[in-house]
Computed example of a mutant assay.
Amino acid sequence: MTAQPASFSSVFSQALRGTPCLVVGLGDNVRLPVARWTDDAGPDDELLLAQCVGPTLDIGCGPGRLTAALAARGHVALGIDVVPEAVGQTRERGGAALHRDVFDALPGEGRWRTALLADGNIGIGGDPVALLRRVRQLLDPRGRVVVEVAAPGVPDSTCWAALECEGVRSRPFRWSVVGVDGIDRLAGVVGLGRTAVRRTEERWCAVLEECA
């Protein structure tokens, strides 16, 4: 049966409510790891959380596990997401969140100490350079970007992808994958430099800051 077309927001909302969901187009179809996202922040998330300093903007916050965890640690933390269901679930956890695209006008522009791009969100929009340029505008000059990246050996790539849940498929969207091998080049294009790489057994993150 051919899947019926739907908006990204409606399909992702179904996934956040517990409907199994596949990402179509990223090589083999991959199950969206929603159970991990809707759970509380776990030990592996310490990899990212420990790198966040000061007021933190969680870009593409999803259901808000990291936004809420940062707030619990005493950070000023704001999640933003383009899906209203995600924003609502973040608020239900006690986190602050807005229904915004990262390219919209945002509170505190030029004053955030950390911008967090977790769970592959460096891929948002399928143009990591444009995304990092925008993120740099949001940061305090002393600020940093904490970016979750793919493992060594994974090549940078951009493709059209879609979400599919219970017979409905989202309209295609552009998405990028950036590996730890490629993040230095991308950061350099926008005037950022990598100051650290952290890893657990299965996850990697890079910390980017203004070049001296």
Results as ranks from 00 to 15, higher is better:
residue 85 E to N: 07
residue 67 T to M: 09
residue 72 A to E: 08
residue 66 L to E: 01
residue 103 F to M: 13
residue 66 L to S: 01
residue 45 D to P: 06
residue 64 G to E: 02
residue 103 F to T: 13
residue 46 E to A: 06
residue 78 L to V: 13
residue 62 G to R: 00
residue 112 W to G: 00
residue 51 Q to M: 15
residue 86 A to I: 06
residue 52 C to I: 08
residue 110 G to T: 12
residue 112 W to S: 01
residue 106 L to S: 10
residue 58 D to C: 12
residue 61 C to G: 08
residue 41 A to E: 00
residue 112 W to T: 00
residue 39 D to V: 02
residue 83 V to M: 07
residue 66 L to T: 01
residue 49 L to V: 11
residue 100 R to T: 06
residue 83 V to I: 10
residue 44 D to F: 02
residue 54 G to P: 05
residue 99 H to A: 05
residue 103 F to G: 05
residue 68 A to C: 06
residue 69 A to K: 01
residue 76 V to T: 15
residue 56 T to L: 04
residue 93 R to V: 07
residue 56 T to S: 15
residue 60 G to K: 01
residue 98 L to W: 10
residue 80 I to C: 06
residue 92 E to D: 15
residue 62 G to T: 05
residue 113 R to V: 11
residue 46 E to Q: 12
residue 106 L to V: 12
residue 79 G to E: 01
residue 77 A to E: 06
residue 55 P to R: 09
residue 48 L to Y: 03
residue 51 Q to I: 07
residue 54 G to Y: 10
residue 39 D to I: 01
residue 61 C to L: 09
residue 92 E to P: 02
residue 52 C to V: 12
residue 68 A to M: 05
residue 40 D to N: 10
residue 63 P to W: 10
residue 43 P to E: 12
residue 41 A to D: 00
residue 62 G to Q: 01
residue 44 D to A: 12
residue 53 V to H: 13
residue 117 L to K: 06
residue 43 P to H: 07
residue 44 D to C: 02
residue 83 V to Y: 04
residue 58 D to M: 12
residue 80 I to Q: 00
residue 58 D to A: 10
residue 72 A to T: 03
residue 98 L to D: 03
residue 111 R to K: 13
residue 92 E to H: 10
residue 47 L to D: 04
residue 73 R to I: 04
residue 79 G to K: 02
residue 81 D to C: 08
residue 56 T to I: 07
residue 53 V to N: 08
residue 96 A to I: 06
residue 44 D to S: 09
residue 47 L to R: 03
residue 59 I to Q: 02
residue 96 A to L: 14
residue 114 T to H: 13
residue 93 R to G: 05
residue 102 V to I: 15
residue 71 A to N: 03
residue 98 L to T: 04
residue 76 V to M: 14
residue 65 R to L: 09
residue 58 D to K: 11
residue 97 A to L: 08
residue 87 V to S: 05
residue 70 L to T: 00
residue 55 P to Q: 12
residue 62 G to N: 04
residue 61 C to Q: 06
residue 57 L to C: 13
residue 63 P to N: 09
residue 96 A to W: 02
residue 97 A to W: 00
residue 101 D to C: 14
residue 45 D to I: 04
residue 76 V to D: 15
residue 74 G to S: 08
residue 57 L to E: 04
residue 78 L to F: 14
residue 65 R to Q: 09
residue 97 A to M: 09
